[in-house]
Write a protein that binds this DNA or RNA. Structure first.
Length: 361
DNA sequence: TCTGGGGTCCTCCGCCTG
DNA sequence: TCTGCAGGCGGAGGACCC
C-alpha cells in the first residue's frame, strides 16, 4: 500500500538502547552480564521492574512487572535499585556520539529518540550505512549496543527498531510500510495499550493488517473517536508527525506510593507539603509559575481520584501549593474516606514568571 | 501478577456567557 | 423576561508511554 501522507524525501530513524539501565550496570560490573539482572524497586516491597537484562527476560521477567513476581520467576536474579544520575550521564555521552553522525535528533527518553536521516542520506538504502555508523559510534563511546529502525515515518521506524533486538538494524523501504506492519500483533503499535488491544481482540482484530483494513463504520464500532482513526492510520504506516526539536513541560508532578497504606491525616498532609516544596523549587528553577494544582489519591483497591483547582494568577509559592493540595485531599476524602496507598501533587497551566518591580512614587 | 513515578493527550460533563 | 444553543473553560478520569 502506498502512503500519500508521506513525502518520499522523509527518512526517519528510531534509536533504542538495548535494556539500557541493566546495560549501564553491566558496564561497571561485567560479571553481571552473564547472570539475570533486574533494575527496579524492592522485591520485598511494592516496586516494579524498570529494566531486566536479556538473561532475566529468558525467565519471563518483563518491564512493569512487580518485583515480587520477578523474584518468583527468577529467584537467583540480582536486583539493583536504579541510579538515574548515572543513567543521565551515560545517556548524554550516547547522544553526543549520535549527533557526531546525525546532527538533528529528537530525544524522547534517556534511551530512545528519532534521527532525521534525510539530511545525511540520499535514500533509505544509503540511510542503512548511516545507521550502522550510528551504532558503531554509540558502541565506541560507551560500549553499549542499540537497535535502529529506519523508515519514512516515525511509527514505522519505532516498530522496526523493536523487531531485531538487541543490536539490530531494520530498514523498511518506502511503499512497504503497511505490508511490514500487517502481520504484526496490534499491540506493537504505539498507542495501542492493554485496553485498546482488548477491545480489538474482542472484535476479532489481532493483527495490524486487520486494523488497517477496517472501514469507517467498523472502526467507529470498535474504537470510536480520534483515537480509532489515529490507530488505524498508524496500522497503515501513516504518521504525519515530524521531529520535535524542543519541547516545554506542560505539567510537573510528584507522587509517592507508601510501603503500607496510610490513613493518618497529619502524615498525608506532611507528604503533600513536602512535595509542594520540591515542586515549588522546580518551578523557581525554571522561572515558571503554575495556575492549576491537582492532588492525586490512590486507594488500596488501586482506584485513583484526582481533584484540582485553578487559580486566577499563577504561583510558585510552596506554602500556597501545599495548602491547596491539602484542601483538595480533604475534599476527596470527604467524598470517599479511607486509607491511601499513594498521594501525589501535580502543577500545570505553567506560565513564565513575571518579575514585578515596585517603583517608589 | 498485583500493579512506580513522571509525564502527555483525549474525552466527557457541567457551568457560564453571549 | 424566558428559552435554546453554541462555544469556551474548568474539572475529572482514562489510557498510554518511557
Amino acid at each position: 500500500m502506498s502512503n500519500p501522507a508521506v513525502s518520499s524525501s522523509s527518512i526517519i530513524g528510531h534509536l533504542d538502547l538495548d535494556a539500557f539501565f541493566a546495560a549501564v550496570e553491566q558496564l561497571e560490573r561485567p560479571e553481571l552480564a552473564t547472570v539475570p539482572l533486574v533494575v527496579g524497586g524492592d522485591p520485598q516491597g511494592r516496586g516494579v521492574v524498570a529494566t531486566a537484562n536479556y538473561e532475566a527476560r529468558r525467565f519471563g521477567v518483563r518491564s512493569a512487572m512487580s518485583c515480587a513476581e520477578a523474584l518468583r520467576r527468577c529467584p537467583h536474579a540480582v536486583f539493583l535499585r536504579p541510579d538515574h544520575a548515572r543513567y543521565r550521564r551515560v545517556s548524554r555521552t550516547v547522544w553526543e556520539a549520535v549527533r557526531e553522525v546525525v546532527p538533528t535528533v529528537e530525544r524522547t527518553g534517556l534511551d530512545e529518540g528519532y534521527l532525521q536521516l534525510e539530511e545525511v542520506a540520499a535514500d533509505v538504502r544509503e540511510a542503512r550505512a548511516v545507521g550502522e555508523a550510528v551504532q558503531a559510534a554509540v558502541r565506541g563511546a560507551t560500549g553499549l549496543t542499540c537497535s535502529l529502525g529506519i523508515a519514512s515515518t516515525k511509527v514505522v521506524a519505532k516498530v522496526a527498531s523493536d523487531r531485531r533486538k538487541p543490536g539490530g538494524l531494520v530498514v523498511v523501504l518506502p511503499g512497504r510500510e503497511a505490508a511490514f506492519l500487517a502481520p504484526l500483533d496490534v499491540r506493537v503499535l504505539p498507542g495501542v495499550g492493554p485496553r485498546s488491544a482488548e477491545r480489538l481482540r474482542a472484535a476479532g482484530i489481532e493483527r495490524a493488517g486487520a486494523l488497517a483494513a477496517l472501514d469507517d463504520d467498523a472502526l467507529t464500532a470498535v474504537l470510536p473517536g480520534k483515537i480509532g482513526r489515529l490507530l488505524r492510520d498508524r496500522a497503515r504506516g501513516i504518521d504525519a508527525r515530524r521531529l520535535e526539536l524542543a519541547s516545554e513541560n506542560v505539567s510537573i508532578s510528584q507522587e509517592e506510593t507508601f510501603a503500607r497504606d496510610v490513613s493518618d491525616r497529619e502524615r498525608l498532609h506532611d507528604e503533600l507539603r513536602g512535595m509542594a516544596v520540591r515542586l515549588a523549587e522546580r518551578l523557581a528553577r525554571g522561572r515558571q509559575v503554575a495556575r492549576t494544582v491537582s492532588t492525586k489519591l490512590r486507594y488500596p483497591d488501586f482506584s485513583t481520584r484526582t481533584r484540582s483547582t485553578t487559580l486566577p494568577v499563577g504561583t510558585d509559592d510552596a506554602a500556597r501549593i501545599g495548602e491547596l493540595a491539602c484542601t483538595l485531599l480533604e475534599r476527596a476524602l470527604a467524598e470517599r474516606p479511607g486509607a491511601l496507598r499513594l498521594v501525589g501533587v501535580t502543577v500545570s497551566k505553567l506560565e513564565t514568571a513575571v518579575q514585578l518591580t515596585f517603583v517608589e512614587p
